[in-house]
């Protein structure tokens, strides 16, 4: 297996408090990896280490098979491209912002111009080329930051929470772009997100972080299908699921396992998605009960032990699966 990164016994501490502790972690070349976790879980710290912005307090990193040494950092930074959560654009035009990294690498003017023009066209930024960067909307600025990164032709593209400040339209555009860059450019892409469903939808590999440690990924529900815009529905192979009004496109639907409610009787509530099915499996994982219910689609629910005791069900019993349409997300 070819690895972009191989991290061993990595630790990074702010003052005396460790922000990230990893025994061993691999990131495959040309894969999409999602770092998932809550605020303060260590995602940004890990990204800064992967982008060679910060050096770990201890541990070893191999980058594309080469052992990283202290004096390699500048050259390694030039092989990666890192986009901050709220990217900072210089107080100049969009064109000059995109050109900047090439200038820093002393790329000749003719080549610079050709590469910038190509990326501007690729991302559809022609109309913004000569606008001042500070006049752009959040989504436009994010796109310019991506253009500024990919024009450098990096081996790894690292994006810190790229979706958090984007509206629906830009979010879909960006999801599509990440997939396209990964396939066409054979780029290794690493992004962080709070949204497990989105991570599962986009990434080949998910790294879940809690308090600076990698933990096993929680199960989520992801179903292929299509949106029926007129009726506000998502049609999968075996089910029809109600969507929030804001969603009008997408090919995959995700439901957070912890948002699914199980009951013996049909619930009289505002939850518009209700399916009747049979429990296929039940198991305890780190204190949580993981239940799989076959109700057309196979729904994975995570409930507490107390909820299971109250429900008093076992494998083979019939239950209702309910969830709000707001618990549903749709991805391109």
């Amino acid at each position: 297996m070819n690895y972009a990164y191989h991290l061993r016994e990595i630790e990074f501490a702010y003052d005396a408090t460790p922000a990230i502790t990893l025994d061993e972690y691999y990131i495959q070349q040309q894969s999409i990896t999602a770092l998932v976790g809550a605020n303060g879980s260590g995602k940004s710290t890990l990204m800064n280490i992967l982008a060679f912005i910060n050096r770990p307090s201890r541990g070893n990193i191999s980058f594309f098979g080469e052992q990283v040494r202290d004096d390699d950092y500048l050259s390694l930074r030039r092989r990666t491209a890192y986009i901050q959560q709220k990217p900072y654009l210089l107080n100049t035009t969009v064109y000059r912002n995109i050109e900047l990294g090439l200038k820093l690498r002393a790329v000749k003017k003719v080549q610079r111009h050709a590469r910038v023009a190509k990326v501007i066209e690729q991302l559809g930024l022609q109309h913004l080329s000569y606008r001042r960067a500070h006049e752009l909307s959040g989504g436009e600025a994010q796109k310019v930051a991506i253009a500024r990164a990919i024009v450098l032709d990096p081996q790894v593209l690292i994006l810190d929470e790229p979706f958090s400040h984007l509206d629906e339209r830009f979010r879909h555009e960006l999801e599509e772009l990440i997939g396209r860059l990964n396939k066409a450019g054979k780029l290794t892409i690493i992004f962080s997100t709070h949204d497990k469903l989105q991570a599962q939808s986009l990434a080949d590999q998910i790294c879940s972080l809690v308090d600076g440690h990698v933990v096993p990924n929680s199960i989520i529900n992801l179903f292929p299908g299509s949106v029926d815009v007129e009726n506000g529905l998502f049609v999968t192979e075996n089910s029809v699921i109600h969507l929030p009004a804001s969603i009008n496109s997408g090919t995959r639907l995700g439901i957070d396992s912890t948002e699914i409610v199980l009951s013996r009787d049909e619930l009289k509530s505002s939850m518009r998605n209700r399916f009747y099915g049979k429990i296929k499996s039940l198991h305890d994982e780190a204190g949580d009960i993981h239940v799989i219910v076959n109700a057309g689609e196979k729904f994975h629910a995570i409930i507490s032990k107390a909820a299971l005791d109250e429900l008093a069900v076992s494998v083979g019993d019939d239950v209702w699966v309910s969830f709000k349409s707001s618990a549903v997300n749709v991805y391109l």
């Binding site: 500048l74 930074r77 030039r78 986009i83 820093l104």
Partner: peptide, 12 residues
């Protein structure tokens, strides 16, 4: 964010 932006862009 400027200092990290400079670093990320590969500025010496």
């Amino acid at each position: 964010r400027l200092a990290d932006t400079c670093k990320a862009l590969g500025a010496n």
